[in-house]
Structures are given as C-alpha cells and as structure tokens.
C-alpha cells in the first residue's frame, strides 16, 4: 500500500512537468531517444524473446506487434461475441432514428 501511495504521489508530482508535451495531439520529441530493453531482468521466456527481438531485429518485432495486435483484437471480438450472445439481447438489428 505504501509503495502504491508513493507511486501515485510520484506520478501526481510529475504531472505538471510531464503532461504538456505528452498530452499535445501533435506528439512529443521522443523520436530522438534510443531505448534498449534490459533482458537480464526478464524471466518469462516469451517476454524475453520479444525483448530480444526489440533489441536485435526491429522489423520482425514490428511485424509481430501488428500481427499479435490484430490476432488478439480478433480473438477478443469473437470471445465478446460469444459472451454477448448469451445476454439475450438482439445484437443483429437496430432502428436508425436521428431525432
């Protein structure tokens, strides 16, 4: 709890400093940064694979990012469809009325 409180306070304190450039629709100046994932602290094999890929083959990482996002989006869509179908609501028709 103490750790959580410390983080919340830290984030709140950081807000006036960090918010401006982040919140702008036009984006920030982050493109100049070079970030390297620290794979030494990662235990999970899958996460370690992607972190390694991020460091060594960014093209393959980008392809994986898009494919996984699309696949996970599809999976969630189908799962939600399955769940929503059990609510008893009619989810295939609607009446368009503007006013």
């Amino acid at each position: 709890m103490k750790r959580w409180m410390r983080r919340v306070l830290g984030a709140a304190g950081l807000l006036p400093v960090a918010a401006p450039s982040l919140v702008w629709a036009a984006g920030g100046k982050a493109s100049q940064l070079v970030v390297v994932a620290d794979t030494r602290v990662i235990q999970n094999a899958a996460l370690k694979y992607f972190a390694d890929l991020y460091n060594t083959n960014i093209w393959l990482f980008a392809v994986w990012a898009v494919v996984l996002t699309a696949v996970y989006g599809c999976f969630l869509g189908l799962l939600m469809d399955f769940i929503m179908a059990r609510t008893g609501l009619d989810l295939k028709s609607r009446k368009i009325v503007e006013h």
Partner: peptide
C-alpha cells in the same frame, strides 16, 4: 497513461 507514470517515449 501519463498519470500512471507510463514512459512518454512509449505512450503514443
């Protein structure tokens, strides 16, 4: 994301 302390470089 900013309030959660998410790193700015990755936010967008």
């Amino acid at each position: 994301l900013n309030i959660l302390g998410f790193p700015m470089a990755f936010a967008i």
